[in-house]
Simulated scan of single mutants.
Amino acid sequence: MINKITTLFNIKYPIVQGGMIWVSGWKLASAVSNAGGLGLIGAGSMYPDVLRKHIIKCKKATSKPFGINVPMLYPDIEKIMDIIVEEGVKIVFTSAGNPKTWTSFLKEKGIKVVHVVSSVKFALKAEAAGVDAVVCEGFEAGGHNGREETTTFTLIPMVKEQVKIPVIAAGGIGTGRGMLAAMVLGADGVQIGSRFVATVESSAHINFKNTIVAVKDGDTQLTLKELAPVRLVKNKFYNDVQELYKQNPTKENLIELLGRARSKKGMFEGDLDEGELEIGQIAGLIHEIKPVKDVLREIIDEFNAIKSLEINA
C-alpha cells in the first residue's frame, strides 16, 4: 500500500499509533513499527532522561521508522527536543501548542514534523508553519480533545478541502472499515489510539485494559472543558466531577478536585475509582486484548476485504 503517508514515513501501511501518555512506551511503539505502521513514543508522561531510555530501547527493538509525540505544553520541552535531535529520531508529532514554535527548529535538523489539530483554522496554521502533515482529530477521540466538538468524519473533508499537505484522520477509528471510511472522505492515513491501548505491548495497567474491553457505547464523556477537554470513562472520579458541576464551580475548584497525576493513577497504576481513564468512543468496539501484530493485521485485512467488495460491486 503506497500513498503519501507511507512514502512520507517510509512505512508499509498508512497507520500511525497515537502517542498517548502512560500508554505509549518503547514496547508499543516498536511493535507497531515492526508490524508495518508508525509507532510513536508518548513523551508527555516522561521526564527527559526517561524519554532517552525509551528511545534507546526502541532503536534496539526495531529497525523501522518510529517517532515521538511531544505535547508542547511540556515544562521541559527544550530538553525533550534536544534529546530527540541527539538520539537521531527523524519523526516528531507535536500537539497542544503553536506549531510555529518548534517546526523550523526540527525541520532544520532533517526531522519530519506533523501537528495535531482539531479544526480547519488550526490545520491552516500548521500548514503555514511548514509541517509535513496534519493529524485531524475529531470529537470521538480519547484523552484531551479540541473545544470545537467537531466529529472526525465532518472534520476530515473540511480540512482536506483547505490544505495541500497530507491529512491523517484520528478519533473514533479502530477498524479496517473505519480506516477505509476516513480515506474515502479524503484522509491519506489514520492515527489509531484507543485500539492500541488494549494490546499486550501497551504500558497501560491491566485493570485499565480490562475496563476498555468492558466499555459500551455511552460509557465515555467529554468533560473538564474549562481546563482542557478530556474524554473519560464514567467512573467514580468522573461522577465526582459531575457532582461538582452541580455547584457551579470555579476553575480553581475544578483544579483542586483534579489534583495531580490523575491520569497516571488511572491508566498506569490501575486505580479505576480515583484515576482518569482516558479512552475514545471506539472502545465500544474493542472486545479483546491482543498483540499489536494481530490488531494491525486485522485492520489491514478488513480494509482490503471491504475495499475489494466495493471495487467489485
Rank of each mutant, 00 (worst) to 15 (best):
I15H: 08
G39I: 10
I55W: 06
A35N: 10
Y13C: 01
D49G: 03
W22E: 14
F66Y: 08
V23G: 10
I68M: 08
G67S: 02
I91E: 01
S30I: 05
P71T: 00
G37A: 08
T101V: 11
S30C: 05
N34Y: 12
V23C: 15
K12F: 00
I15V: 15
Q17G: 08
D76K: 15
I91Y: 05
I80V: 13
L38S: 03
E86D: 15
M81S: 02
Q17S: 13
K90F: 01
G37Y: 05
P99I: 07
I84H: 03
W26A: 14
K64E: 09
D49A: 10
G44F: 04
M46L: 15
S63F: 02
P71L: 00
W26P: 08
I91V: 15
G19E: 03
N98T: 05
M46S: 12
T62L: 10
I55S: 09
M72P: 11
G44A: 08
K60S: 13
V89N: 12
A29Q: 08
E87V: 12
P71M: 04
V89I: 15
M20E: 09
V16L: 15
P99N: 09
S63Q: 12
G36N: 00
S63V: 02
T94N: 03
V23K: 08
N34I: 12
I84M: 01
M72Q: 15
I84Y: 01
V32E: 13
M81V: 13
A35R: 08
K64M: 09
I84D: 02
V32A: 13
N34L: 07
V16N: 01
D82P: 10
S95Q: 01
M81D: 00
S24H: 13
I80T: 07
V16D: 00
L38D: 03
E86A: 14
P71N: 01
Q17N: 04
G88E: 13
K60R: 12
I21L: 13
D49Q: 14
G25V: 07
K12D: 06
T62D: 06
M46R: 13
I21S: 14
N69P: 10
A35H: 07
D76G: 02
K60D: 11
S104W: 00
